[in-house]
């Protein structure tokens, strides 16, 4: 280390120490713990104990299935919605753009518990506004919390509500970086607005959309708050239990840290794998 840099590193030391103790160490430690049997004291080293259990555990596969199901439905729907919202926000016809931008971004700022509580109220069987609306257009009430399919749908709706605007703002930034004269050239080329969207806007937004998709995939892999608070710990009967919830249940309810660590590493590994596949599928030619 050059002397010149030494002072800088001394200033950084407090941060680096905290980073090492509370970030690096837990990451290494949990990896080691995942190879230990932690149901009995003292913990003992048993490499296949947790990982072996994982492979045959129906609860794990249920959580994995739920997480992936939410992933493949909710992420594309949300990103599509975000693109539509961004295009509308970018329209020169829109008045009070700042207000809409704030409104779209607001859900991210709202506390998780508060928004979950509001969603439980809105979707409640007898008093919820959603069921009232369904009734008023002649549709039957839906019991959102006691059946698996509506409960899953509810989770997806909630997550989409919370994050679509956030993604729309990011996509809007991408939209604004496309120069106007490209569209003017297309207009002179007699390309309709719709074709311009599909042949110019979407391809040029691809990097931004991929970025949003990666963020969303990582977020959804760790999904916890909504199934914990809205559908009450993954209810009905584990029907909306996600990997994040399973981890919580194993680690903090059963205090089975070894198994929880194994689940945590599986989640991270899956997120990385899916992201890599996605980046590879959408890579720039050449």
């Amino acid at each position: 280390m050059r002397y010149r840099n030494a002072t800088a590193y001394r200033f950084l030391t407090p941060y680096l120490l905290i980073f090492a103790i509370f970030w690096i160490w837990p990451i290494i430690s949990s990896f080691l713990i995942s190879f230990q049997a932690t149901r009995t004291v003292p913990w003992r080293f048993a490499p296949t104990f947790n990982w072996g259990r994982l492979i045959g555990d129906p609860a794990f596969f249920n959580a994995l299935k739920n997480t992936l199901l939410i992933l493949v439905i909710q992420v594309p729907v949300m990103i599509s919605l975000a693109i539509v919202m961004a295009v509308l926000l970018n329209s020169p016809l829109l008045k009070a753009r700042g207000l809409y931008r704030f409104a779209f971004f607001a859900p991210v700022v709202v506390g998780e518990v508060a928004y979950s509580a509001v969603f439980r109220l809105m979707f409640s069987l007898d008093f919820g506004i959603v069921n009232k609306l369904l009734n008023s257009v002649g549709l039957p009430k839906i019991d959102w919390f006691s059946n698996v399919t509506p409960a899953m749908a509810l989770i997806m709706i909630a997550v989409t509500w919370r994050w679509a605007g956030y993604n729309a703002i990011i996509i809007l930034a991408g939209l604004q970086s496309i120069p106007d004269d490209v569209y003017e050239a297309a207009t002179l080329d007699r390309v309709s607005k719709v074709k311009q969207f599909f042949h110019i806007t979407l391809p040029l937004l691809k990097p931004v959309i991929v970025f949003c998709a990666v963020l969303s995939i990582i977020g959804t892999m760790q999904l916890f708050t909504e199934p914990f608070l809205i559908t009450e710990r993954g209810g009905p009967g584990g029907g909306t239990e996600t990997l994040g919830l399973l981890l919580y249940r194993q680690g903090f309810r059963s205090l089975n840290f070894g198994y929880a660590s194994a689940v945590a590493y599986t989640m991270a590994g899956l997120a990385i794998a899916i992201t890599l596949v996605q980046l590879w599928l959408t890579r720039e030619p050449k």
Binding site: P179, D181, V182, E184, A185, A186, I200, P203, L204, K206
Partner: peptide
């Protein structure tokens, strides 16, 4: 023909 060329970048 535009000053900035306005080619389709992709």
């Amino acid at each position: 023909v535009f000053q900035s060329y306005a080619l389709y970048p992709h």
